[in-house]
C-alpha cells in the first residue's frame, strides 16, 4: 500500500498533479480566453456555423457507417476463433497507429484517377476529392477501429451461454441477438460510438489532404490561425469543444441505466 509517510507517495502525487495541470491548463486558458462578445460574434458567423455543422454531421455519418458495417464484424470477432485472427485484429488497429497525413495520402492514392478504384468511382459519378463524401470516408477510416474494438469487447462480455439458453427457449439467432446480446452489450456499443465520433471530429491531418474545402471545423480553426492569428481561431475552437461535450453528455444521458449486475 502507498503510505503517506513514504517518499513514493509524494512523488506519485506530484506527478499526478503535473499530469492534470498539463491537460487542463491549456484548455482552461483557451476557454477563458475569448470574451462573451467575441463568442457571440463567432457563432453568428455563417462560415463558423457551417464548418461546425459539417464537422458534427460528417462525424455522425462516419459513426453510422461504423455501426452498420462494424457491428456484425465485431460480433464475429467476439464469438469465433479462426486462423489469422491476431493478424485481422492488427489490421483493424492500423488506422490508429498510422500518422494522419499518411492516411490522407494513402486514401488519395486509392481514390485518385490513377488507380482503378478511383476511375470506377469517377465513372459512377462519385467525387471524393474535396467533397463531403470524401470527408466522411476519411473520418470513417480513422474512427472505425475505435467502434470495432469497443463493440468487440462489449460482445465478448456477453456470455455465449446466455445466447445458448435463449436459442434453447425457441429464439432464432436474430431474435437472440436483439433480445439478449444487444441489450447487454449496448453500453459498450454506445461508448464505441462516442469514441468513434470524438476521433472523427478531431481529425485534421488526413482531411486537409482529401478535402480542404468544404471546411470542417478543425480545418477552419487552422485556417483562421494561419491567416488571422490566435485570437480569431480560439473562439471557434471553444465552440467546437462546447458543442461536442454537450452532445456526448446527451448521448450518455439517453442511454439506458445499467441493471443490477449478476453475481
Amino acid at each position: 500500500m502507498l503510505n503517506r509517510r513514504e517518499p513514493l507517495f509524494w512523488i506519485s502525487l506530484s506527478c499526478g498533479l503535473v499530469v492534470l495541470a498539463f491537460i487542463t491548463l491549456p484548455l482552461v486558458k483557451m476557454i477563458s480566453g475569448p470574451t462573451a462578445a467575441t463568442m457571440r460574434q463567432t457563432i453568428v458567423d455563417p462560415e463558423v456555423r457551417r464548418s461546425i455543422w459539417l464537422s458534427l454531421y460528417t462525424a455522425g455519418a462516419a459513426a453510422l457507417i461504423a455501426v452498420a458495417i462494424g457491428t456484425p464484424f465485431a460480433y464475429l470477432l467476439a464469438r469465433r476463433d479462426f486462423p489469422g485472427k491476431k493478424l485481422v485484429e492488427g489490421i483493424i488497429d492500423l488506422p490508429i497507429v498510422i500518422p494522419h497525413p499518411v492516411v490522407g495520402i494513402a486514401l488519395l492514392s486509392l481514390v485518385g484517377r490513377n488507380f482503378w478504384v478511383g476511375r470506377l468511382l469517377h465513372e459512377l459519378g462519385v467525387r471524393l476529392m474535396g467533397s463531403v463524401s470524401g470527408i466522411i470516408m476519411v473520418l470513417t477510416f480513422v474512427g472505425l477501429p475505435f467502434y470495432l474494438n469497443a463493440a468487440r469487447e462489449g460482445f465478448a462480455g456477453v456470455s455465449p451461454r446466455l445466447e445458448a439458453v435463449a436459442r434453447s427457449l425457441g429464439a432464432s439467432g436474430r431474435q437472440t441477438f436483439f433480445l439478449v446480446t444487444l441489450p447487454l452489450a449496448w453500453r459498450s456499443l454506445l461508448a464505441g460510438i462516442i469514441m468513434c465520433c470524438a476521433r472523427a471530429i478531431s481529425e485534421f491531418g488526413a482531411v486537409v489532404i482529401i478535402a480542404y474545402h468544404p471546411m470542417i471545423a478543425p480545418v477552419l480553426i487552422y485556417e483562421r490561425f494561419e491567416s488571422f492569428g490566435l485570437k480569431y481561431s480560439q473562439p471557434v475552437a471553444v465552440w467546437l469543444i462546447f458543442l461536442c461535450l454537450t452532445l456526448f453528455l446527451l448521448l450518455r444521458l439517453v442511454s439506458p441505466a445499467p441493471r443490477p449486475a449478476a453475481r
Binding site: 451461454r161 446466455l162 445458448a164 439458453v165 436459442r167 434453447s168 427457449l169 425457441g170 429464439a171 441493471r259
Partner: peptide, 19 residues
C-alpha cells in the same frame, strides 16, 4: 438449429438474463 429442438438447458452458472 437449437430453437427447433424443444430441448431445454440449465447451466451450472444459472445463465439468467441479467437485464
Amino acid at each position: 438449429p437449437p430453437e427447433k429442438r424443444q430441448i431445454g438447458i440449465v447451466y451450472q452458472d444459472y445463465a439468467l438474463f441479467p437485464h
